[in-house]
Design a protein around this nucleic acid. Structure first.
Length: 455
DNA sequence: TGGGGTTAT
DNA sequence: ATAACCC
């Protein structure tokens, strides 16, 4: 006779061995990814700046749009990207603050990323209010610290998608549970140290982590166990909701009769590849199965800085020049604070047009070395020569002898390089191949000294 | 429809 | 330089 204890022990050992074989311990094939998504970020920053706004319906305005709003406003019918007119109509008590200057949002955004980097250095930013963190290693370490008698006490933090039951014998479940605990600590740190609330999603890849983070909304977190991933992706009502399938691709898919997740899953791969190109086709078809092997790529320092302004009409060169000077003044301050130096400048315009939705043109050029040098110290030394260069780009795009009508100007500094800190006469000075060698500290708050040795 | 960002071609 | 994607 086999007694029940033996049956239990056998079952225990069986489960452990099966799953440990499927995903060997220390295997990199299974990851734990967290997606952190701040609640109505701009509105939160505004409420921190001015606590009197708390408790009132609050919208953040850019031009004629309410770009985001707090939950009090949402309960009264205000939606993201609603026009100010519609929002005021829905909600006359709505308090509006101007959010066209992104400085404070950008600063708070990087504080969040910096905080998350303390949990794992592998943090990828997505916009100002979202971050992906690969915590596979953090989780592995914690699981190895766990004594075997502590295993039964392992619990989830926050929601489990679909209320799926947890199997502690499954190593993937264990990892994701510890992941949910790390996510809870991240949200606690954001609240305690920065005063910010947000959602988190924990799953085995970026796509699923992002989708699951939005399941319980505001200020909550959800973990997805592997057995529920098909339910999650099938909960999408349209392929446009799939991150990675944008406006254009969704339209082209719809023309092929593909509009739902199952449509995309079962559509013939060869035809899809012919229509969209092999790269996009293979990527999005994998997405439709919940598969996403793209790594969390550490964002590090920004690749570019830009400032832009939109308006009803700009139709003269002097008008454009004064707007460009305004954009440039802010940019020079930002570049100065960063410490690195841009080697390329780009001007982008939008011309007035009744129909064409997305029409933008740009011209870019290298920044001459003698101007790059002036970028570090006083912002005003660089101002005049930079304006001259940008106006050349402007006249290259716009025939100023003909009538024109612009609705947007954008100035972008990119191709950022660390300043050369190698001292003249040293081995380093002569061996530094260009100045592209990364000499920055890796900390965003660190400011490099301008040693005037670049170029 | 704003004021940003990224990568691929 | 543009086009696509993300927020």
């Amino acid at each position: 006779m086999i007694n029940s204890l033996n049956v239990f022990l056998y079952f225990f050992a069986y489960c452990a061995s099966v799953h440990d074989q499927v995903v060997p311990a220390g295997s990199s094939s299974s990851r734990v990814i967290v997606h952190v998504d701040l609640d109505c970020f701009y509105a939160q920053v505004e409420m921190i700046s001015n606590p009197e706004l708390r408790g009132k319906p609050l919208g953040v305005q850019q031009k004629s749009l309410v770009v985001t709003c707090n939950y009090e406003a949402r309960e009264l019918g205000v939606k993201k990207l609603m026009s100010v007119r519609d929002a005021k109509e829905k909600c006359p008590q709505l308090v509006l603050v101007n959010g066209e200057d992104l400085t404070r949002y950008r600063e708070m955004s990087y504080k969040v990323t910096d905080l998350l980097e303390e949990f794992s250095p592998v943090v990828e930013r997505l916009g100002f209010d979202e971050n992906f963190v690969d915590i596979t290693e953090t989780v592995e370490k914690r699981l190895q610290q766990l004594q075997s008698d502590e295993l039964p006490a392992l619990t989830v933090s926050g929601h489990v998608y679909n209320d799926q039951s947890i199997n502690l014998h499954d190593i993937l479940h264990r990892r994701l549970l510890v992941g949910s605990q790390v996510a809870a600590e991240m949200r606690e740190a954001m609240r305690d140290q920065l005063g910010l609330t947000g959602c988190a999603g924990v799953a085995s890849n970026k796509l699923l982590a992002k989708l699951v983070s939005g399941v319980f909304k505001p200020n909550q977190q959800t973990v997805l166990l592997p057995e529920s991933s098909q339910d999650l992706i099938h909960s999408l009502k349209h392929i446009k909701e799939m991150p990675g399938i944008g406006y254009k691709t969704a339209k082209r898919l719809e023309a092929l009769g593909v509009s739902s997740v199952p449509d995309l899953q079962t559509f013939p791969s060869k035809i899809l590849e012919k229509e969209l190109g092999i790269s996009v086709a293979q990527r999005i078809q994998k997405l439709s199965f919940g598969e996403d092997n793209s790594p969390v790529t550490p964002s590090g320092l920004p690749q570019s800085f830009s400032e832009e302004d939109s308006f009803k009409k700009c139709s003269s060169e002097v008008e454009a020049k004064s707007k460009i000077e305004e954009l440039l003044a802010s940019l020079l301050n930002r570049v100065c604070q960063d410490g690195r130096k841009p080697h390329t400048v780009r001007l982008t315009i939008r011309r007035y047009s009744s129909e064409k939705h997305y029409n933008r043109e740009s011209r870019q050029c290298p920044i001459p070395p003698h101007i790059i040098q002036k970028l570090g110290a006083g912002t005003y030394d660089a101002m005049t020569p930079m304006v001259d260069i940008i106006m050349k780009l402007f006249r290259n795009m716009v025939n100023v002898k003909m009538p024109f009508h612009l609705t947007l100007l954008n100035v972008c500094f990119c191709n950022l390089k660390a300043v050369n800190t190698a001292k003249k006469g040293t081995i380093d000075y002569y061996l530094t191949p260009s100045l592209s060698t990364t000499t920055h500290s890796g900390k965003r708050s660190f400011k490099m000294k301008d040693t005037h040795m670049e170029d």
